[in-house]
Design a binder for these strands. Sequence first.
DNA 1: TGTACATCAGTGAACGCGCGTTCACTGATGTAC
DNA 2: TGTACATCAGTGAACGCGCGTTCACTGATGTAC
Lengths: 209, 209
Amino acid sequence: MPQQHQTFADLKQQERKTRQRVIVEAAERVYGKMPFEQVNMRAIAKEAAISVSSIYRYFPDRQSLFVEAFILGTRQIIARVEDHIAGGEISGLKDFARMYMDFLLEHDHYFRMMTHFMLDGRLAGRPLEKLNQAARTVLDQFDRVFAQTGANGGNRLYSHAFFAALNGILISFGKYPGRDPGDVRRHMRKLADIVAEMLETPGCTDATT
Amino acid sequence: MPQQHQTFADLKQQERKTRQRVIVEAAERVYGKMPFEQVNMRAIAKEAAISVSSIYRYFPDRQSLFVEAFILGTRQIIARVEDHIAGGEISGLKDFARMYMDFLLEHDHYFRMMTHFMLDGRLAGRPLEKLNQAARTVLDQFDRVFAQTGANGGNRLYSHAFFAALNGILISFGKYPGRDPGDVRRHMRKLADIVAEMLETPGCTDATT
DNA sequence: TGTACATCAGTGAACGCGCGTTCACTGATGTAC
DNA sequence: TGTACATCAGTGAACGCGCGTTCACTGATGTAC
């Protein structure tokens, strides 16, 4: 597409996008600040320093805004992984697992959003599509890292299993009852190490079709 | 404790327990019938054929009833596993994994309850204790099965990893976008097989401390 | 340069609904004398 | 056998709150003539 003259209408559209972004970023901050289920439109409006009804000028409903905020999160995690890889800090699946888990533990709200979407079936239409695409991007990255460091680069099943196992560890033991956070974290790391180790050991990933 | 004469007061207490059970079972049925987030006191009351306010004669609040219903579920899954083991149908981790996953897929509501409790941090006090105990029972059973069939019977870490991985598979791919349920199920089984296989292969579970 | 009109961002207040929980009351059953 | 009282299961209606969403309006900016 050749560069056209920028019209006033174009400018307006652009400003609109900018305002949208401001709102999404505010939402994202709110999710980072308060428990996931407590986030509501009023809090987001306050954070964005506008009125609630203004949000509805830019997003048709809560879900849409919500999905955008989540997509912002997936971009962050992908960017961080790329950074670490570029910096040569990831030499195997263990490193990768640790990084992935640390990110989600630090940014609990992304983790909550992720599981929310995985478990909730109510999303549909355009927001759902957008979400699925974001999910695919993350899985693709798992695949890529896996191909570089793991034993079974060619087979998507193994990267899927890895992805699932790490999520499962976070979900199943993240709130381990009656243990202090440090212990919990160490425990989860050990579990992640076990899975990573198995997936990296050549003899262990050949048996299944 | 020696058998005492049964007093009228005892009988009353007993009837009370029975009525409690009726309510919990009604709740359980409701959870099986409608989407998890939509279950409310009114629906449970209707199912139990009593008024809402009557429920509050037997349970202090929603959470307590909720926890009881979930415990009913954990008992069921444990009973089923025992059955299958007694019937000689479980000869390895793969069988066990399949059974566990099938149960949770069939009884989606238990799965939802489980993840709900794993992710939600708001529970406290007596209900939380009860819940934790139920969770421990399930983990113990994993441990036991693992000791019988798996390679690393002595180490709880491996059964924990197994438990977490299976949960993770269910959560991460249960609503895999744009696939029909049959495909999804097959995919999840393959992933479970991979994990089970690795944990059963002796050389794969020795490397980590 | 001025006037009438259209567009649209922004807003505070209100709507409507769902839902957990409580209230004030009824009626049955058991107990004391 | 009868009467006064306590206990407690059960209930319909109402309370109170949170929250997503909509409404009716204001005010600024741009456009047409």
